[in-house]
Amino acid sequence: MSGIIEAKLSELGITLPEAAAPAANYVPFVKTGNQLFISGQIPMNADGIQFQGKLGDTMQTAQGADAAKLCAINLIAQMKAATGDLDKVARVVKLVGFVNSTGDFSEQPAVINGASNFMVEVFGDKGRHARSAVSAASLPFGVAVEIEAIVELS
């Protein structure tokens, strides 16, 4: 039987992917005490890496927000892998979003809103979080967005 959060994902038409394996020498998440630190997730789905490009050049803000939402879906997949039960998420504490963008692009917050809005949509008030939205000259595999998270567990 699925829990409240999984039922909400189902209602939204979201099927969580398998949590992605690390692409280098790191682990996908670390649990310590009641905190879960999730390594940066990129916009990837069953068809592979999505949303490659640079905001302010080859991509528009709305596409970047879609990429950020896909990163958030992958963050939630890691939460599920770490806990076995998404109802154990007491709070999304912080998101750190990196946006592959040109030097004059200044809409990083609007891009990362794609992830922030989705976290609130899924977790309600428990999804409201502190956040950083930072420009990057490039990101792994040429993706537009990468997001990491800190989560409190019950």
Rank of each mutant, 00 (worst) to 15 (best):
L153M: 00
F141R: 15
F118H: 02
G3Y: 08
V27A: 12
I4G: 04
V122A: 09
M119C: 01
G124Y: 05
S10H: 02
S39V: 04
A19L: 02
G142W: 04
V120Y: 07
T32R: 11
A7P: 09
I38Y: 02
K8G: 08
D66T: 12
V96Q: 12
I38G: 00
A110K: 08
S154W: 11
P109G: 09
N45V: 07
D66P: 11
K69V: 06
L16G: 05
A19G: 05
N117H: 09
A137I: 09
P43M: 05
I14V: 10
K54G: 04
Q41R: 15
V122S: 06
F118L: 08
V96T: 14
A65G: 14
D66C: 12
V111I: 13
E18N: 13
V122C: 07
N25G: 12
G40I: 05
A68K: 03
A65N: 12
A77T: 06
A130V: 10
G13Q: 01
N34W: 01
D47G: 14
E11F: 08
Q60Y: 12
E146K: 07
P43K: 02
Q78K: 09
A130L: 15
A115D: 09
I73A: 10
V89I: 07
V30Y: 10
I38S: 00
F98R: 10
V120R: 07
G33C: 07
V89G: 00
F105S: 06
G53Q: 10
A23Q: 12
G40E: 09
S2C: 05
V92P: 00
P22T: 13
A77K: 03
S10T: 05
S10G: 02
N25V: 08
E152D: 14
A77C: 08
E107R: 15
N74Y: 14
F98P: 04
A72P: 03
G3A: 06
V27G: 11
A46S: 15
A133G: 12
G124S: 06
E121G: 01
F29V: 13
L16P: 03
S135E: 05
M59L: 15
I42C: 10
S106H: 11
F123K: 03
E146T: 07
V89H: 02
N25S: 12
